[in-house]
């Protein structure tokens, strides 16, 4: 009697284990058909970005892993830079009250008459997109936001992507991890 009960219990154990193995195999096998060798990272499409400012506030990191990047190829090297100066700036100088950037992360450097170079100090940049908005509205749009992968933790789901109003953030392959605006001008 005891022996019989023991055998029965063992049989139930074995068949349950077998069915679990089959279930796992099924799930794993199906998921295997959908795997890619590529690793995926998050990146912003600068052509979809609307500079809403959520990249600054919604990243799990503080300051955000999103930084402004400068696509020099597109820059007009303007004296009156829409990304550097507030619209109501008193004069075109590097004085703090004239600057759009809240952390003074943009360095303005004279090159030759009448051109100025603008360099972003990424240690200071907080990804607020104020300069991006200025440059896109008044200039060529050479300032734009990108997720910096030396900082980004590559969360399972990007917490900025969840709240991005224009769905500009998506997974991209890690061997093409940036969408820097280059000499191209349309989103193709």
């Amino acid at each position: 009697m005891e022996k019989k009960a023991e055998n029965r219990r063992e049989f139930i154990q074995k068949s349950a284990r077998l069915s679990l193995v089959l279930a796992l195999g099924g799930v794993g096998g199906f998921a295997l058909t959908k795997t890619t060798k590529d690793e995926w990272v998050w990146q912003i499409d600068p052509f979809k970005c609307t500079q809403c400012g959520r990249c600054e506030s919604d990243c799990v990191l503080a300051p955000s892993a999103v930084k402004c990047i400068h696509a020099y190829d597109l820059c007009g090297y303007c004296d009156l830079c829409g990304g550097y100066f507030k619209p109501d700036a008193n004069e075109l100088s590097t004085a703090g009250e004239n600057q759009l950037c809240p952390t003074a992360a943009i360095e303005r450097k004279f090159i030759e008459e009448p051109y100025f170079e603008y360099i972003i100090n990424e240690d200071l940049c907080i990804g607020c997109a104020k300069c991006v908005e200025g440059c896109t509205s008044f200039g060529n749009g050479s300032f734009h936001l990108q997720i910096m992968h030396n900082i980004c933790l590559n969360c399972n789901e990007c917490s900025i992507a969840r709240v991005c109003p224009s769905d500009a953030i998506s997974r991209v392959k890690s061997n093409e991890a940036y969408k820097v605006k280059g000499d191209f001008t349309t989103n193709t």
């Binding site: 090159i111 990424e122 060529n140």
Partner: peptide, 21 residues
């Protein structure tokens, strides 16, 4: 809107840094 200038002083344009993941 503003064409890229042609520099005369031998200015070398830097390229944006994109650290690898």
């Amino acid at each position: 809107r503003f064409p890229k200038p042609e520099f005369e002083t031998g200015y070398v344009q830097p390229s944006p840094e994109t650290p690898e993941p």
